[in-house]
Simulated scan of single mutants.
Amino acid sequence: MIHRIDVRVIAPVRDTEVTDRVADAVHNLFPNAELVTEPGRLVADAHSMEQFSERLYEQEILDSARKAFFRRADDDGFAFALKKQAAFEGVINFAVGNPDELGDIEVQVTVHDPDVEAFIDHVAPPTEEGRPVDPDDG
């Protein structure tokens, strides 16, 4: 199935931070993102979440990801925030509640094809007892 998506990643860059390090944090989770430096932040655009999805499987946090995605989903896409400190380590950690002092990485996903729910199912499939559910196993 072909997925047509636009991923926009916005990462605040504090005065105390090295811009390249923040760029590394974004690239750790979105390796194909094209970064642009703007005053006080980095903005990155990508068209794939494959590596992000692989990381969700590796970290076994598909359920957490689904919750985070659906919490801010609408007909056009979904958004979520990530802890910047974890991203430096290449780890996905969803930010819920107040951003920490470095600010959270904001991710906005616009889904053109298929629909939003089908794309979320692709990136972070439903699970049973922590394991991805394959509809073909039924």
Results as ranks from 00 to 15, higher is better:
residue 64 S to E: 15
residue 64 S to H: 10
residue 64 S to Y: 10
residue 64 S to M: 11
residue 65 A to R: 00
residue 65 A to D: 01
residue 65 A to E: 00
residue 65 A to S: 01
residue 66 R to I: 08
residue 66 R to S: 09
residue 66 R to H: 05
residue 66 R to P: 11
residue 67 K to P: 05
residue 67 K to L: 15
residue 68 A to K: 01
residue 68 A to L: 09
residue 68 A to E: 08
residue 68 A to R: 00
residue 68 A to N: 08
residue 69 F to N: 00
residue 69 F to W: 00
residue 69 F to D: 00
residue 69 F to A: 00
residue 70 F to Y: 06
residue 70 F to W: 09
residue 70 F to L: 04
residue 70 F to K: 00
residue 70 F to D: 02
residue 71 R to L: 09
residue 71 R to A: 12
residue 71 R to P: 04
residue 71 R to F: 09
residue 71 R to I: 02
residue 72 R to V: 06
residue 72 R to W: 05
residue 72 R to G: 08
residue 72 R to T: 09
residue 72 R to D: 10
residue 72 R to H: 15
residue 72 R to F: 07
residue 72 R to Q: 13
residue 72 R to M: 10
residue 73 A to P: 04
residue 74 D to P: 08
residue 74 D to T: 03
residue 75 D to P: 05
residue 75 D to L: 15
residue 75 D to A: 12
residue 75 D to R: 14
residue 75 D to V: 14
residue 75 D to W: 09
residue 76 D to T: 10
residue 76 D to N: 15
residue 77 G to M: 04
residue 77 G to A: 01
residue 77 G to D: 02
residue 77 G to S: 04
residue 78 F to R: 03
residue 78 F to N: 03
residue 78 F to T: 02
residue 79 A to W: 05
residue 79 A to C: 07
residue 80 F to D: 01
residue 80 F to C: 03
residue 80 F to H: 06
residue 81 A to S: 12
residue 81 A to L: 11
residue 81 A to K: 09
residue 81 A to R: 15
residue 81 A to Q: 13
residue 82 L to C: 02
residue 82 L to V: 01
residue 82 L to G: 01
residue 82 L to S: 00
residue 82 L to Y: 01
residue 82 L to E: 01
residue 83 K to F: 07
residue 83 K to M: 03
residue 84 K to H: 07
residue 84 K to W: 08
residue 85 Q to Y: 10
residue 85 Q to K: 13
residue 85 Q to I: 14
residue 85 Q to C: 09
residue 86 A to I: 01
residue 86 A to R: 02
residue 87 A to S: 12
residue 87 A to L: 07
residue 87 A to Q: 03
residue 88 F to M: 08
residue 88 F to R: 08
residue 88 F to S: 12
residue 89 E to K: 12
residue 89 E to W: 12
residue 89 E to A: 14
residue 89 E to I: 06
residue 90 G to N: 13
residue 90 G to E: 10
residue 91 V to H: 09
residue 91 V to N: 11
residue 91 V to E: 06
residue 91 V to A: 07
residue 91 V to Q: 13
residue 91 V to K: 12
residue 91 V to W: 11
residue 92 I to M: 04
residue 92 I to C: 06
residue 93 N to M: 10
residue 93 N to T: 06
residue 93 N to F: 04
residue 94 F to P: 06
residue 94 F to L: 05
residue 94 F to T: 01
residue 95 A to H: 09
residue 95 A to S: 13
residue 95 A to C: 13
residue 95 A to L: 14
residue 96 V to R: 06
residue 96 V to Y: 06
residue 96 V to T: 11
residue 96 V to K: 06
residue 96 V to P: 03
residue 96 V to A: 13
residue 97 G to V: 02
residue 97 G to H: 12
residue 97 G to E: 03
residue 97 G to P: 06
residue 97 G to F: 08
residue 98 N to A: 14
residue 98 N to P: 11
residue 98 N to G: 11
residue 98 N to K: 15
residue 98 N to R: 14
residue 98 N to C: 08
residue 98 N to D: 14
residue 98 N to T: 10
residue 98 N to F: 12
residue 99 P to Q: 07
residue 99 P to E: 11
residue 99 P to L: 05
residue 99 P to M: 05
residue 100 D to A: 08
residue 100 D to C: 04
residue 100 D to W: 07
residue 100 D to I: 06
residue 100 D to R: 13
residue 101 E to V: 12
residue 101 E to K: 15
residue 101 E to D: 15
residue 101 E to W: 15
residue 101 E to L: 15
residue 102 L to N: 15
residue 102 L to M: 11
residue 102 L to A: 15
residue 102 L to D: 14
residue 102 L to S: 13
residue 103 G to E: 06
residue 103 G to F: 08
residue 103 G to C: 05
